[in-house]
Design a protein around this nucleic acid. Structure first.
Length: 219
DNA sequence: TGCCAGGCCGGGT
DNA sequence: ACCCGGCATGGC
């Protein structure tokens, strides 16, 4: 019997402690930073974002810049030839839609409408959209990255064949809305611990007693 | 030294 | 509806 999401969250929080609050500079900054973070390490992401802001200093300057100039500014983040056109196109689309470079209007939309707008932008998939919704807008969306996906399968919160996109729907429906932030932070942290320190058999895992893949499940 | 990082897209089955 | 290759720098 697999543990419930609430049980898993409580156990992770008891073991690791409550996640620290995360600062956000607003939905547009969150979106651009999250695009830079796609399949990229934290340190490279921060370097790329700093490079972008140092070079241009405003959303308008980035929107107006040629994609190769944006690529130069974010090169240290990796995948610059992919991300530079994405960032430019996203800013152009927002400017065209709204007449200004701001995503603050999303805060007054229902969750699914805000998500639909974000994912309609090229280069913005379910994970990136969920980051903006959760971190910048405080909405109950769950970013499912590789860690959350893998750990959720391992703990039996979702089936072994559920893909990342479906995992967003299933986990958001199963996790209490007020727990979405802690669930995301704790599952990622736990995923990193499993990945780095407890391989290959999760020996010593603090959730061994409720993980169907490690020990005897108690619900 | 090689592997991989908090994805997403487009093309092929 | 899935599967897969491509993208690419820096840290361990």
């Amino acid at each position: 019997m697999a543990p419930t999401p609430t049980c898993v969250i409580e156990r992770l929080r008891a073991y690791y402690g409550p996640p620290a609050p995360r600062h956000s500079d607003g939905p547009l900054a969150e979106l651009i930073q999250t695009i830079l973070s796609q399949n990229t390490s934290d340190v490279n992401t921060e370097r790329a974002f700093a490079g972008l802001w140092t070079r241009f200093g405003s959303w308008e300057a980035i929107r107006a810049a040629p994609a190769p100039a944006i690529a130069d500014a974010i090169r240290s983040g990796g995948l610059a030839q992919v991300k530079a056109p994405r960032i430019k196109a996203v800013l152009e689309a927002i400017e065209a839609d709204r007449g200004e470079l701001s995503l603050d209007f999303l805060g007054s939309l229902p969750l699914e409408e805000a998500r639909a707008y974000l994912t309609s932008l090229g280069g913005v998939g379910p994970k990136t959209a969920a980051c903006v919704l959760l971190f910048a807008l405080g909405m109950p969306a769950l970013p499912v990255d590789t860690h959350v996906h893998r750990v959720s399968k391992r703990l039996g919160l979702i089936g072994p064949t559920v893909n990342a996109e479906a995992a967003h729907r299933l986990l958001e429906a199963a996790i209490p809305p007020g727990e979405m932030y802690d669930a995301h932070m704790l599952l990622i942290h736990h995923g990193r611990v499993i990945c780095k320190a407890l391989r290959p058999r999760c020996a010593g895992c603090p959730l061994a007693d409720v993980c169907p893949k490690v020990g005897v499940a108690v619900g």
